[in-house]
Design a binder for these strands. Structure first.
Length: 278
DNA sequence: CTAACCGCCCGCCAAT
DNA sequence: ACATTGGCGGGCGGTT
């Protein structure tokens, strides 16, 4: 998307060979509950008018989303300074260079701070929006939307960007993203962080450090997150007992699963399944 | 529920 | 001078 020579309302030129008819101007942001920057051309500097409109909307309490390269104007507005942002993996370094005040997370699907949400590229942006629907309207509404879009009902934002892709991936494979994939492929098994670090050919200390740089969390809590996300998915879609779900997701005991499940989601596994199926 | 145990993880610091 | 690595210690929290 280009930001130059715009007369809003009007036609917004794109680099895809067609224009987008825009019916409203920035004044719409004054009443918006959620403001979405769906993309951006990083070669363009956001205009002061746009940045001001974003800042005013944010200060008023509106939620601001920056999808994919849309993270650029969001970062430029200064409303995520000191906090984590996600963006398209190819633009992560550039975003970090241009806006040093934000903390770029190159290995996550999205970063949700409640008031500001940013996501990685294309497919991750869909997952991010699905996450927003889930938050605002509940799991069943999100599942409904996911079904229509032919998406997996829930991918967790802390997953590496490339992990769920089914085909051979051309994206850069960093040591940490490899480690995330390594873990996802053996989620049903139990392993220590030291095992994990050795598989990544690092000392445990370095592994923990690099892991944190790439994902914003520690290996242990990331892993727990993934185990719980998969457990929830199995509960929603399968008929396995809680006991079986626990072993399939790498929990040592069903009691352990129940404890973490309750802490994270506020319900028991059985109650979640019942609520979901109805 | 308690107690002992174990793994996580992060500050610190020396070595590279 | 500066950055990165990795061993160590120990508080903390989960597991048995």
């Amino acid at each position: 998307l280009s930001s130059t020579a715009l007369r809003w309302p009007g036609t917004l030129p794109t680099n895809a060979g067609y224009g987008i008819a825009v019916e409203n101007d920035l004044g719409t942001l004054r009443g918006a509950h959620t403001v979405v920057m769906p993309s951006w051309d990083p070669d363009q500097e956001p205009s002061d008018r746009l940045l001001d409109a974003l800042r005013v909307a944010h200060a008023r309490g509106a939620r601001v989303l920056g999808l994919c390269l849309g993270a650029f104007p969001v970062a430029a507005a200064g409303i995520v300074d000191g906090r984590e942002v996600a963006t398209h993996w190819r633009a992560a370094a550039e975003l970090e260079r241009r806006y040093p005040a934000v903390r770029v997370r190159p290995a996550v699907l999205w970063a949700d701070h409640g008031d500001v949400i940013t996501s990685a590229g294309v497919a991750a942006a869909l997952d991010c929006c699905l996450h927003v629907v889930r938050h605002d309207l509940g799991a069943s509404a999100a599942t409904d939307v996911a079904r229509r879009l032919v998406l997996a009902p829930h991918r967790d934002g802390t997953q590496a960007q490339y992990i769920p892709t089914p085909v051979v991936d051309v994206r850069a494979a960093t040591p940490i993203s490899n480690a995330l994939e390594w873990a996802m492929q053996r989620l049903d098994r139990q392993f220590t962080v030291n095992d994990w670090a050795r598989a990544a050919q690092m000392s445990q200390r370095t592994f923990v450090r690099r892991f944190h740089d790439g994902t914003g969390t520690s290996p242990g809590s990331w892993l727990l997150h993934q185990r719980l996300a998969r457990a929830r998915l199995l509960l929603e879609t399968g008929t396995d007992t809680v006991e079986a779900v626990a072993t399939a997701t790498g929990f040592a005991t069903a009691a352990s699963l129940r404890q973490h499940f309750a802490r994270r989601f506020g319900t028991s596994p059985a109650r979640h399944r019942a609520a979901f199926s109805s």
